[in-house]
Design a protein around this nucleic acid. Structure first.
Lengths: 208, 208, 208, 208
DNA sequence: CGTTAAACGAGACGGTACGTCATGTCTTCGA
DNA sequence: TCGAAGACATGACGTACCGTCTCGTTTAACG
């Protein structure tokens, strides 16, 4: 299952701890879950706040109180639904990295949510206020995991020290993601492993 | 300039050469150009048929006569506007391929249209009727150019014969595209060259 | 049957007997007949030139060439379809007049076209250019017949000489038409005869 | 002024006193008033929901929420705008009835709204769902007033007891309405009085 | 323990865009 | 030149959502 509840920061972040009735945390959950479902079913373009609210059993203003626009909602739904990367640690850092990449992409490409990721990224590309939460909650945690692995790989002598960690990331994840999202060709495990095993030649210390 | 008029197939593909008044090809051009402009200015999500028609100096039904939905229009506008890849031929096939990739991505990432590509791809991902024209007119011609280059590279002995052409494509283009579209980090020429020069190690014949 | 072809003046009245291909009179007929049918079926508000042309097996511009607007077409279709009044002559002018009125209204109220008359009159009320042909070809011929009858009635001593002919007309036709078109109550023969037989008391010479 | 606000039944008849935000009665008023104005200015055929909404300072969907079609709106605007008949009571019932008829028609025929009545009636003739409100709110109240007058006239011995009230109505109102709406001839006070004074001979008890 | 302020479901509201349809004009072809 | 076909600019149609705004009700925390 892809859903993860580990994000602590409350949705609309009403810090006031004020007088009135406190927000119902259950509503946050239900709305995000409904948004995730509808994104998976119909895609980002067809997502309507109306439908999300109705499926969550909630009024429309209750949704807007937490996420001011449809795009905000979608971004947070995505953040909410994609599980954090967790790297194995077998002692072979590059192997772990490859396993991580292959697992991530094959899992995502088999999930109905997969095809939504692109649409959300597209929307975020033009709007910094959307892109920031996505970067902060989605990309950076993944980058941190990857950077750690690359660091480990360097210490193990399996990754050339002159290549920056983000370049390694691009080289390992890029081909997989590109094939999956852009070309639309299938990314089964065999294909994924072919791609990463070839890519790892690029980052391995040269014979010369 | 990115706009190219080389697509022969007429828009709505009324092949009939029928009885009535023939369609005005100038209208096709004006509408696609208007759509491209508006996509570049406001992005896919803010594109409206109304605005396209009005900027093209055309009635709304005239747009719908050719492209039945907004998405159709956007896809064809994109196809219409991105120039065909043309590979150099310096005798160094892998160098040509890398130059092609670097040039393509740096050019696109500096064009206002660049940030639109992702949104259109996202929309196409869930709708085969949109994806097909995109694949046919956009991806396949590019693939053909790349495959030719890879073929040449193999004959020159610069590319390992056991790697399929599409894998080469993914390895060379993937990291660039991934960095540009997904991570949102800048892709200047130096970064691009670092990525492809590293990637080419993966496809070069091994020392052993 | 209500349709009558006795109107001599051709539709668009191209008198020129010009050089080119002459107009096909059959087309005039077919278009008017189609218009009458559609008026009867769907009413004036739902009439479309498109549908008329298509049912007549004719192009839309061919219709417009003859009648410049939809309203024009409808007015002429109505004129074309309602038969001229023909008064009996039994020697009893007032009886003839009453018979005329009763026959006219009962016939019209049983025709599917009946309910269209009102709509066309309504349209003509605000547009003199429509009202004129209606008056000229529809109302005036009827008025002439009625005026003749009233004249005869006066000579027979059955109609008071101090009442103008148009007042007689209003008194005899008005109640019938009012009941039929405005109140929507049924106008069967019995009701019609009750109305006119009462009305004729109003125009008969007084006992005193 | 012709506008009257006496109709109690709310527009869209949302009786539920439901949960959500209640409808703004002021909007009902503004929309109907705008519709009346536009009907008077341009007639039924040229009425557009767009224009009504805009003149009322209201969104188009707000109009549709209350009246599902243009015709519905027009019917209710008409009902809303025409004042109820109020009969004088001078002790002379037939005189009162005639005065009522003459006043009604001369007033209406001088109102810009007058020429609209016919169009609305025409539309109602073919659609029971439109005709019903018109009958209920417009015709029946008038009929009730007239029937009362006829009753009074009978008790005063001024109306023959063997003529039904609706026949009296048709005989008195019919000629006036017919002349005004159908023939298009002017209905000034003199003409109107000639018509009704003649018509009253038909309903007066005979000398014989 | 009662006040009270906010959350909540519902749904009206002014907008904007959708995709369709009809009008009346025009342009091309074939007769 | 007519007539059929159909493109064209225009503009209204009726629907769907948007994001905001009342409503009346519920629910905790404060006083």
């Amino acid at each position: 299952m892809l859903v993860s509840d580990e994000h602590k920061s409350e949705a609309g972040s009403r810090q006031g701890r004020g007088r009135g009735r406190p927000r119902n945390a259950e509503v946050d959950r239900a709305v995000l879950a409904a948004a995730v479902d509808l994104l998976a079913e119909h895609g980002f373009g067809q997502l309507t706040v109306e439908a999300v609210a109705s499926r969550a059993g909630v009024g429309r203003p209750t949704v807007y109180r937490r996420w001011p626009t449809k795009e905000d909602l979608a971004v947070h739904a995505l953040i909410h639904s994609v599980p954090p990367l967790t790297a194995p640690d077998t002692g072979d850092a590059v192997g772990d990295l490859c396993e991580l990449a292959v697992g991530f992409v094959t899992e995502l490409s088999n999930s109905p949510l997969g095809s939504v990721v692109l649409g959300v990224h597209a929307e975020c590309g033009r709007r910094p206020e959307l892109g920031n939460p996505l970067r902060e909650h989605y990309l950076q945690p993944r980058d941190a995991v990857i950077t750690d692995l690359v660091e480990r790989g360097r210490r193990e002598g399996a990754i050339r020290p002159d290549i920056p960690a983000d370049t390694v990331r691009d080289l390992v994840f890029g081909p997989l993601i590109y094939r999956w999202l852009i070309t639309g060709e299938p990314v089964d495990r065999a294909t994924a492993e072919l791609l990463v095993s070839t890519a790892r030649r690029a980052v391995a210390p040269g014979e010369r």
